[in-house]
Structure formats: C-alpha cells, structure tokens
Design a protein around this nucleic acid. Structure first.
Lengths: 228, 228
DNA sequence: AGGAGACCATACATAGTGTATGGACATCAA
DNA sequence: TTGATGTCCATACACTATGTATGGTCTCCT
C-alpha cells in the first residue's frame, strides 16, 4: 500500500530537496490568489494550479481549504499583535500611541487585505475559523481592557461601564471598519478618513477627547502620510 | 410546450385557490428554518421540504436562494427604520432617544435574528445581497448624519471630523455588535451589556457623555441624565 | 539494490445549484 | 363540453465543488 498517511511533520533524518516546501507553496499561492479573489470564489483546484501541486498532495498537508486560510491568518495576525504594542505598553502619550496603533492596523490590513477579508467573510461559516478569529479578537480586547484598567483617566471616565465590553466594542468596530476599507466601501476606502474616524472612536470613548483631523495630522508621531 | 415562463405577477382575472401563496409559504418556511440554521447550511431542498413546494415552483418565483433572503431582509429592515425614528425626529432628549433606539434595534435583532445573521454572513458573497445591505446601512448612516448635523451640540463636539464617517462608523459598529449578540458571543450575549455599550459608544462620540449602567437602568424609560 | 516516503494523475462518491422536460389539474372563455 | 392558459409537481440533467481512494513514479537513504 502506498502513502500510508503518516504525519507530515518532521520525520526525516537527513536533508532533502523538497521536504515539505510544497506546504509553503500552497500557502503562498493561496495568499496571492486571495489578493484578487474572494475566498469562496477560490476552489482548491485553483490553488492546485497556481501552486503546481497535485490534489493528493494538497490534502496530504491540509485537511481543507479553511485550514490553509487559518494558517495564513495566524501569520498575518502575529504581526498585528505588535501594532497595538505602543499603546498597550503605555510607551507615550496615549492618544498619539492610539493613533499610531490604528495606523499600523491600517497598514497591516492593506498588506494582508486578501487574507483578512477572507477570514472576516468566512469565520461565520466554519467552526475552526470562527474559534480562531474570536480568539484573535479576544486577545486584542484583553490587551485593550488591561490597558484601560491601568489608566486612571480612562478608568474614571468609563465610570461603572463594563470595561471589557467597551474594549470589545472598539476592537470589533475596528474589525468592521478595516474590512469595509479593504472592501472599498465609502467613506472608509479613504485611509485618512478611516484612521481619523477609528482613532476618534477610541479617544472619545476612553478619554472624552475628540481629535480633529487637523490636530490629528499635526500630532502624528511618525510620518506615514497617505495619498495627497 | 409547457409552462411558458410568463411573469408570475398578477395575471389572473378571477379568484383562484392558491394564486401565489406558495411564494409566501417559501418565504415563511425559509424564515423559520433560518431560526435554527445558518444560511449556507440551508439548501433549497430543505426549504422545499419545509414549504411543501416543488423545486420547479421555487425557481418559478425566485431566481435563487439569495433572492428569498433578500426579500426577508427587506421586510425585517423596514421595521428597523422605525426603531431609529425617535432619535432621528428629535422627539425628546437625544440621549434617552438614542438609548431607546438602541433598545429597539436589539429587539428587532432578537425577533429577526435568523434573517439578519444570514444577511450579515452572506452579503460579502453575493452581489445582490451586498448592494441591499450596503444600501440599508447607508440609509441608517444618512439619517444619523442628518440628525447630527441638525444638533449644534453634537456638531460642535465633532469639530472638523467627517460627520458622515462618524455616523457610518457608529452604524456599522451596531451591525457588528448586534450580530455578535445574536451569535452568542460574549460579552454581548448579555443584552444589558450590549445596549449599555452601544449606547455609550454613540453618546460618548456625539455628546461626550458617558452613561453608566446604573444611570442607564434608572433612566431607561424616559429621563436619563448625561454623565458628569 | 531495494525500501520508504513524498509526490502525482486520475477517478470516484457525495452534495448542492439552477435548468429543462413533460405531465396533472383548475379556471375561464367559447 | 371543449380547449386554451396558467399554476404547479415530479423527475432528471448538466455543472461545479469537495474530500477520499487507488495506484503509480521518482528520489533519497541505508
């Protein structure tokens, strides 16, 4: 009997020309295809053709199309965890840090639009993707909640509000707005509007401050200016 | 040649036992099935069985499964337009009206959870549903923006922020939170938390007021006080 | 050399969508 | 009554997609 379906993990003892780089080829082909097509318009056959891999090999490495997406999402989000780092770590003026985090989020979404749009559109239809995405959102929520609780100003402003819930609502609002931006839905297709609006939502909820665009642009810590 | 595929609309001259109540049966069967199952776990065959209608009849009245959902959504959202009425019409204290609107939204979502969850999960994958949903969200956004512009207090608070964008962000945040609540995702599965959080998001963005839960519960019916 | 593991080609079972065909039956007009 | 029209049903088909199964090939390692 052929291919006894053993674990595809480390099993070899010596070097090999193409150990499991097929796995990588599948991942990156999927990532590329997702750049121009929606996840459920993407068939396994398409991935096969793009990756130059056989059907059998595909299913040897991944149990399903969804599993591939899951892995791509984990990769992408791992970067995202760092985007919120500055604000979380209380490294500088909270509002400036918040804006920086929102901007980094926008960049992350711009660079991984295909993958992230795919997960947002699909986590409702697949148990595994659902768990993955809820866990990711929860991680962000948890971090934001901890940060809020450590900030007397924000803490006081929220009064008896459920801090966790406020953090979650802002996190999910971000998910929605970034998605809409990636999908080209106005007015969020304009990155400046996206960042201003999202930053404002966070600051007005936590600090009661409304940062106008003018102030925002002036107060921007870094220099990643968007188009014109 | 049989069934010449004429328009299914009013074509008859006299009374008939079952003119097009089949159409209605299909709609309500789908609505019921959606109460316990996700839209894409629902096959046309399931609807056929539940409605007691043949496959041919189904496709005589509807071009697709999505079209049925579209019609159900229009029905449900028509009620929703009224939920926002009090605040939009400036009928009373804006914060109280806002909370009332958010509560009505929650009720609407509770009563039409199946249909609304279905559209939220599916508008990304179908052109028609996408247009429908974006149009609905736009209607809410437009109304909110108009209301904000008519309110000097809110208008001033937003400074140079893009009013339309702020209105859209709050609308979409609502979409997300109601959906999460319907899907049973904590902490929004607790309706009190959902309403408090969402109301707070609107009030803190527009009026700079944070309404705590205690105040909220006390003032729920008619006269809440704004925070601080 | 020969065995094992990685890979491929192909075919299959299953399930879903939307279309096509032909027939049953009721109403209405003549 | 007859026949045309229009509504509806049963069934079958064409197509697409997923995930599995079978067997063969190549290459490296021992």
């Amino acid at each position: 009997m052929p291919a006894k379906r053993t674990a595809p993990s480390a099993r070899r003892s010596g070097p090999q020309p193409t150990p499991a780089e097929l796995r990588e080829r599948i991942l990156s082909a999927t990532r590329e295809l997702l750049r121009g097509r929606r996840f459920d318009d993407l068939s396994v056959a398409d991935v096969l053709a793009a990756a130059g891999v056989s059907r059998a090999s595909f299913y040897f490495y991944f149990p399903s199309k969804q599993a591939v997406l899951g892995e791509l999402v984990r990769d992408a989000v791992a970067q995202g965890q760092q985007a919120a780092r500055p604000w979380i770590a209380q490294e500088k003026d909270p509002i400036a840090a918040l804006r920086a985090g929102v901007s980094d989020g926008a960049r992350l979404w711009r660079e991984n639009a295909g993958v992230l749009m795919a997960i947002v559109e699909s986590w409702g239809s697949d148990e595994g993707l659902r768990d993955l995405w809820l866990e990711q959102m929860d991680t962000f929520t948890e971090a934001a909640a901890a940060r809020i609780n450590a900030d007397p100003h924000a803490r006081e402003r929220l009064g008896s509000m459920d801090v966790r819930a406020v953090a979650a609502s802002l996190t999910w609002m971000g998910e929605r707005l970034y998605y809409l931006a990636a999908a080209g839905v106005p007015p969020f297709d304009d990155e400046r509007v996206l960042i201003d609006t999202l930053t404002n939502a966070w600051t007005s909820a936590l600090y009661g401050a409304t940062v106008t665009r003018a102030e925002a642009v002036r107060g921007r810590a870094d220099k990643p200016r968007s188009g014109t």
